[in-house]
């Protein structure tokens, strides 16, 4: 494998990462996932097409290999991004315990650090805001988008023979 594939693929990813950081400082988008997909995928498509246009001798497998490396790294980053964007209770919990080492924390002390509204109610409002859940009077129900989103996750667990996750 030609070393330039590795070099260009990684450079492309890091350029997009820098673009993402700059964009977030200039103006943070409302729809994070869509913006991230655009920031990471559009430059890659432009790069591949421009490279082929400027250097017609570049073989397609090399360009595909560059794009594949970029896409694999980008998907991994986009998947882990929510953990930096919103407080993950598990990460927050373990960091609180670490701060209290060596004596550690009791369960009550850990619970006292969490706002129940933020843990549960805020997530419901996120889902309402994203159009995945809708109000029907006093009740809540899934929207079409919510149903479409949850089905693949349910299918994955069913195929793996696992009960529903505990959340």
């Amino acid at each position: 494998m030609k070393p330039y594939i590795l070099l260009v693929g990684m450079s492309l990813f890091f350029v997009c990462l820098v673009l993402h950081v700059v964009a977030w400082h200039v103006r943070r988008p409302k729809r994070h996932a869509t913006a991230l997909l655009a920031i990471f995928l559009i430059p890659c498509a432009v790069f591949v097409l421009a490279s082929k246009g400027l250097c017609p001798d570049l073989p397609w497998p090399d360009l595909f290999a560059i794009a594949l490396l970029h896409v694999a790294l980008s998907f991994a980053y986009i998947q882990i991004y929510p953990a930096s964007q919103a407080d993950s209770p598990s990460l927050k919990m373990i960091m609180l315990v670490d701060k209290a080492m060596p004596q550690g924390l009791t369960e009550a002390e850990i619970r006292a650090q969490f706002d129940p509204n933020d843990l549960f109610d805020a997530r419901i409002h996120d889902l309402l805001g994203a159009g995945l859940v809708q109000r029907q009077g006093e009740r809540l129900a899934l929207t079409r988008s919510g149903e479409s989103l949850i089905k693949p996750f349910l299918l994955l667990r069913k195929v793996l023979g696992l009960p529903a996750g505990k959340g």
């Binding site: 549960f120 997530r123 996120d126 889902l127 859940v133 996750f153 349910l154 996750g165 959340g167």
Partner: peptide, 8 residues
Amino acid sequence: ARRIHILR
């Protein structure tokens, strides 16, 4: 994920 659990 909390959101997935609520949707489920």
